[in-house]
Structure formats: C-alpha cells, structure tokens
Write a protein that binds this DNA or RNA. Structure first.
Lengths: 242, 242
DNA sequence: ATGATAATGTCAACAACGTAGACCTACGAT
DNA sequence: ATCGTAGGTCTACGTTGTTGACATTATCAT
C-alpha cells in the first residue's frame, strides 16, 4: 500500500452509514468467508478506525445478523400473485439464486436465528414469512395451513441449498470426477458405492434437483391440504434448463 | 485410574485419547455452544496443558470437524432392511433425535462440510451416505436413483431440523405465546398475520411435522421413481458387496 | 543394561482478536 | 457563548489460536 500522505490511522472522507458498513462486511464475507471478517479488517476496508463500527452496530454478532438480514431481505415475494403455487416456486428459485450469489452467507442465514426467539429477530428476516402468509391467506388457506406450508417450503429450501452448496467443488479444472471430488482418497473397501458414483456426483445439477423437489413438495401439499377455491390442480410446471 | 496426585500445573491422570478430547469438546459445546469452545477451556476440562490437544488434532477446525463426525457417526442405518421406505423413515427419526440431543452441534454438521470436497471429509460423515446407498441398491434402485433419493431425504431432514430448532424457545415458562416468542415487540402494522398466529406458532410439534413431511416425500418419491419392490423384482436384486 | 528414537507432555511467547473507556472534534439549537 | 449530541479516534486490557523450543517418558534394538 503506497500511502504518500501518512495519516497515523487511515481515514477516508465522507460519512459512514450503517448500509456502508454492512456492504463492506458482505464484501469481505463473499470473498473470504465469515471467519475472515474481523472488526479490524472491516475497518481497513472502510479506511477508518476500527471503533467507528460500534457506532453503527452494537457488536460483531449484530453485524453478522445484519449481513444475513440484508441478503435475506433481497428475497421478494409477490403477495398478490393469484397462482400461489407458482409464486412459491419462484420464491424458491430466487432463494436459490441468492444462495448461489452469496454462498458464504448461507451459514449465517441458517445458523444465526437458532438462538434467537422469533420476535427478536431483525425485521428483514421476518418479512418473507409475513409475505408468504399473506400470499397464502389471500389464496384462501387458513392461518395454520399457511404456516404449515411455509414451514414445509422453507424447510425444503434450506435443506436443498445446503446440500447443493456441499456439492460445489473449488477446483472445477480437474477433469476426472474421482480426483475432483477427492474420492480417490477414500478406502476402496469401505466406500465402494460412493466411489462408483463419482461421475453421477460430478454431474450434479442443482436447478433440476430443485424443480424435482418442488414437484414432489407441491403435489404432496395440494393433495394433503384442501386446495381452496375452484382452482386447478398443481400443474407440474416447466423446467427451465440451466 | 484414580490417582489423586496433584502436580504443579493442571494434569490429571491416565492417558489422553482422541476420543477423550472429542468427548470433552462435545460436552462443552452441548452446554454452552460452539463459540464457547476454546482450546484453553477444553484443556481446563481435561485438566491438562492446552497444548496436548494438538497431539490429537491438528487444529481447532479439525476439532470441530471431529465433534461433528462423532455425533453424526452415531446415526445408524440398517442396510439389510427389506422395507427401504420404512428404514428411511427411521433414519430420519434417529437423525432428529440426535439433533435434539445435541442442538448446538447441528450448525457444525450442516455448515462445516460446505468448504470441504466430498472425499476429504472425515469418514464418519460419509458412512451414512454409503450405508443408504447400500440400502437402496439392495432394494433394487439404480445408483443414480439411490443418490437422488439420498439427496432428497437429507435435504429434507436438514431443513426440517433447522426449522424445528429455530422454533425452540429458551424460556418456556411464559404462558402467553405472544410474549414467549417475543412477538409483542414487532410493529403491529407490519406483521399482522405473524402476530395473529402466535398460538399456532407456540404449539409447534416437531415430531408430527416430521412425519407429515416424510409422508409427502416418500409418496412423492415412490410415484416419481419406479419403486422396484412389490410388483416385479428386476434382475440384479441381490448384489454381494465386494 | 544401554543407548537411540519416537511419542507425549510443558512452557513461554507472538500476533491478532473483540471491545471498554476516555478523549477529541464538529455542529445545530438555544 | 454554551450546551448536547453524534461521529470519529486512540489506547489499553484480556483472550484467542498457534509456533517453536524444551522436558519428560515410553519403546525397542542391541
């Protein structure tokens, strides 16, 4: 870093907003993961003293919550969509897109609310829940049924996204699936099936898997719960290739 | 075994095994969460110098992986069960029981494999996968289909367990659901539906929810994929492991 | 028994961490 | 002028994970 003007502690110019802090934190996490986020490093990115951060967030934990909130807050739900099942599909797809865009944030989204009661969670985290409840009650479902559907959907999405991220590999340069997945290091005798499935594991397509899961989930839901109104059956939907 | 010989710096008696280290680590995590686990505190529990730990694990990260592995390693699969669907059900129930017994370990199980390619993960983590592949191929499924079923099942389980843990609340003493969930702190205008569903949220029963989800999933799977069992068993029914 | 070799435990030290507390500026309202 | 408040900076404390050197003990061929 060539700094001709040596200020003792780096200070840029202009005010620092909470959004700027969170954006910088997200940048670090996206690049190097959540463990790489330290107050001092974040301050270096902001070109300020580490202590300013505490003017915009009460502590590091709140900061992580804030990052998770900003990402999850980008998930939009169209409460007015008359085709509730289709809307749930799109929400799932958008969620997956968000997760792939910010893979290092997914652990935060999934993990941090574990110790926090519902009402104490940041508002941005609760917005999708409320919106989906709105969508479903507007479609005629009872409150408890809507809640049940929300749980089933997000349970599925969380699980799917985690599983898909687990299958991502860092060096896609390697052509041989066995090597790319590191499967050659496994004891041959103990994991014969796993090793044999290397090519299938390598060719994993998350988007298709998501659609298949959604088919199962939505048909299951519409047959289990009374689909209100004189609306149509679920319609297995078209699969966009990707 | 019982040597009440007190040496200068904390050292107990007897040898320290890797299992003992992991057990102590699990104890700390179960009590106070993963963040509370520090090398020094772990050493205090073991009544030894902090540095011994490095003789049994290359670092803290490996230690966390080890804890996740020991817990997940307790999940047993009966590969020989002829009723594959029933066996998957039981696996799901056992997984849930494990998660409820060690709630603080779930984030580790779910999060740590995210950066590690399949083959480099600890063997105990891969055992359930291999076992379920064995169960399903023995039931007549093709390799890719078996893998698909595994993904669907564990995606669902992961999601369900995370969602259920999020609904657990720390002070179940409070009688009023609104207060217990902290929902009274939410802006009334912004989250009307959510607040209205407080009693339903409070009465969440994870076991029933799991069974409902399993119903949906398993029926969906058996209709989507060719269930090889009852009607006509195809040729390679028996496949000796070699 | 003897000495060599490895395993195992101990200690001090380091750099980096989160954050409390004091201090300093700048500025709009009185 | 004076005050309150918000934003920004600096120092310092206690803790963390880990390194490298050192000490002790076990193992084993000779």
């Amino acid at each position: 870093m060539t700094t001709p003007d040596v200020r003792r502690a780096g200070n840029g110019s202009g005010k620092i907003t909470r959004e700027a802090v969170l954006a910088a934190a997200l940048e670090i996490i996206d690049r190097d993961g959540a463990d790489a986020l330290s107050m001092r490093r974040l301050a270096r990115v902001l070109d300020r003293d580490p202590m300013i951060i505490y003017r915009h967030a009460p502590g590091k934990a709140a900061l992580l919550d804030g990052v998770a909130e900003t990402v999850l807050g980008q998930l939009q739900v169209d409460c007015a969509d008359p085709d509730w099942a289709g809307q749930l599909r799109e929400v799932a797809r958008r969620y997956r897109a968000l997760a792939l865009a910010h893979p290092h944030v997914v652990p935060l989204i999934v993990t941090r609310p574990l110790a926090t009661p519902l009402g104490l969670r940041p508002a941005g985290t609760l917005r999708p829940l409320e919106d989906i409840l709105a969508l479903l009650t507007r479609a005629g479902f009872s409150g408890p049924d809507a809640l049940h559907i929300y749980r089933a959907l997000f349970g599925f999405i969380h699980g799917h996204v985690l599983d898909e991220l687990q299958e991502l590999v860092e060096n896609p340069d390697e052509t041989d699936d066995l090597l790319r997945l590191g499967l050659h290091r496994l004891p041959i005798g103990e994991f014969p099936l796993l090793r044999g499935l290397a090519p299938v594991l390598g060719g994993y397509k998350g988007a298709a898997e998501l659609e298949r899961g959604l088919d199962i989930l939505l048909t299951g839901l519409t047959t289990t719960l009374p689909p209100p109104g004189a609306t149509r059956p679920p319609a297995p939907a078209q699969h966009p290739a990707s």
